[in-house]
Amino acid sequence: MTTFLRKRIISSAVPLVFVVLGVFCLARLTGNPVDLYLPLSATPGQRAEFSAAHGFDDSIPVQLWHYLTQAAQLDFGTSLRTGQSATTMVLDAFPVTLQLAGMTMLLAILGALLVGSLAAHRPNSLIDRIAGLLSMTAASIPDFWFAIMGVLVFGVGLDLLPTSGTLGGPEIWVLPIATLLIRPFGVLVQVVRGSMVGALSAPYVKVARSKGAGAGRVVFGHALRNSVTPVLTVAGDLTVGLVNGAVIVETIFGWPGIGKLMIDSILQRDFAALQAAVLITAVTIFALNILVDVCQALIDPRVRQAVPA
């Protein structure tokens, strides 16, 4: 297991280096931020002064060298926009998104296991058809549309939930999570149903049935446990995709998370904050991938053996 883990970590660390370089280059492609930070009427002298003060007049390799040497000491520079350290901004924003994504995936997985099992229990039944149609529809609704409808219907129309924001009790989580949830939930229901249908016809389930186990026990006790592996794989990839959703959800609901920080940093050409934000996301995705692999290796001995040497 340790060998497996070590190999996996080393081989995944290489992409991280590329991510660090890639985000630096992408950021520099977007041009010099001077115009954004000085008033329209600033003089050429003031522009040159600003460029020099923030190192934008250095050549790109020099800037890259500064960035890398600082990053090696875990210093990601100072945000142009707020004057704060980029590390502080990212560490403030990251837990918000992590919680949002964690809650979403937890609910999506639990919900999908429940609904998917019900559907698979009686394939082609009414429940199965309704679950299939609803989950497919859910997966194809644009998230920003869902979010704004949620605000208008549940926030204003029915007056059940707060419209937005992070100030308040548990009810403030409902709309953001629901918006993030719809797509992973829709996809996972289908995956659970697919693998459950397979598992329900497997020999060991037949054995369990022939021994007189009840339907609930067969579904939840035997088949479900075996469907966890594919669900885990897909859930891992869906979690990665949640970063995209987080950009939209955090923008609409005013959550100070990493998605909002990234989009603001791009629009404001705030390179330091952008680089730090993308790096922490990449590290998280990297850790998540390893976690999924380890879980699978724990669950399924074949995966452990199948790791490429």
Partner: peptide, 20 residues
């Protein structure tokens, strides 16, 4: 590893940068 690199960038972010 190439796949990992692409997946580690939030795709919407690349889109935003490149398209702007």
């Amino acid at each position: 590893r190439v796949a990992d690199v692409i997946l580690s960038f939030p795709s919407l972010l690349i889109a935003v940068v490149v398209l702007y």
